[in-house]
Write a protein that binds this DNA or RNA. Structure first.
Lengths: 154, 154
DNA sequence: CGAGTTATGTTGACGCGTCAACATAACTGG
DNA sequence: CCAGTTATGTTGACGCGTCAACATAACTCG
């Protein structure tokens, strides 16, 4: 998406910034992740909450809520990660429908190894390019955009 | 990607804003596009420059440069769009390697029908949530982030 | 001219994400 | 308890995006 007809100059600049920067920024970060730690962005996203959970176990439902992913996305991704040995799936005692996702030693090793360089890259390519004043404006502004987004169904 | 360890509160807020808002925002916009005009975001992205080109024709190479897509991405997408009847591919007279992409009547009808509602949605969900002062900060700030991103190869 | 390099585009494999359909379990209200 | 509803997860199809390999054409320079 790159159309900016009927947006004035200031509006177009901000919009093009969002649309133009984020894909490139995430591409750079993912590349760093893949090369330095052998993890994709999707894998990293799930490994973070798992590594912070007690015993490295989360129910699929809760994992999905934590990262704001829908069920089938979690399911597909967990299956891919299980094939790679980063997690294992287990039955859920309390709810026979449920699926528990457990971090393996391989997965924990991977996320522990990946995190510092990833955070450093975020700081280097995003935070580091902005002033404190800009950070103070951007954070609340984007939170407000999120607030006004329709709620998935509407 | 959602890790924010070692980022302070202000930094994390801005970073989470970027990572959290853009996927949802683009999802909302794409949904509007699909429902109202039957176009995907990728299709829309290519149709805009094609509709603005003389005779609705661009060489694949130039189309790719315009939207900052690599060759294979253009190739795959143009093939999908040709199957849908939005464009046709033609040989390039000046350069036997080249591939010309031509907007069909169907494609032009689609983009003309899609654009107003799409721009309105951008205004509604992004521009409309921000103050003028915020737009003035965000545009140049993101442009600076883009400037400091490594140049694809490095 | 001709060998080596660069530019352009296609292809196939694979990971990712969404959607709709499905299966099953849990909950709810009579 | 039971019928209807809701919650959870899986599956298959398909579009999207990247990567590496490939084919071909154009360019460069001795």
């Amino acid at each position: 998406m790159s159309d900016e007809r009927w947006l004035d100059k200031r509006e177009a600049l901000a919009w093009r910034g969002m649309i133009g920067v984020l894909p490139r920024l995430t591409a750079v970060l993912e590349r760093q992740l893949v090369q330095d730690a052998g993890l994709s962005a999707a894998e990293y996203t799930l490994l973070v909450p798992l590594s912070e959970a007690p015993d490295g176990v989360l129910r699929a439902r809760d994992l999905g809520r934590t990262v704001s992913w829908e069920r089938s996305r979690i399911s597909h991704q967990v299956i891919r990660m299980e094939k790679r040995g980063l997690v294992v799936r287990e039955e859920c005692g309390e709810d026979a429908r449920g699926s528990m996702v457990r971090l393996t030693d391989t997965g924990r090793t991977a996320i522990v190894a990946a995190a510092p360089a990833h955070v450093a890259a975020v700081r280097r390519y995003f935070i580091g390019a902005l002033t404190d004043a800009e950070l103070d404006v951007i954070g609340p502004a984007l939170a407000r955009v999120l607030d006004r987004l329709p709620d998935d169904d509407g």
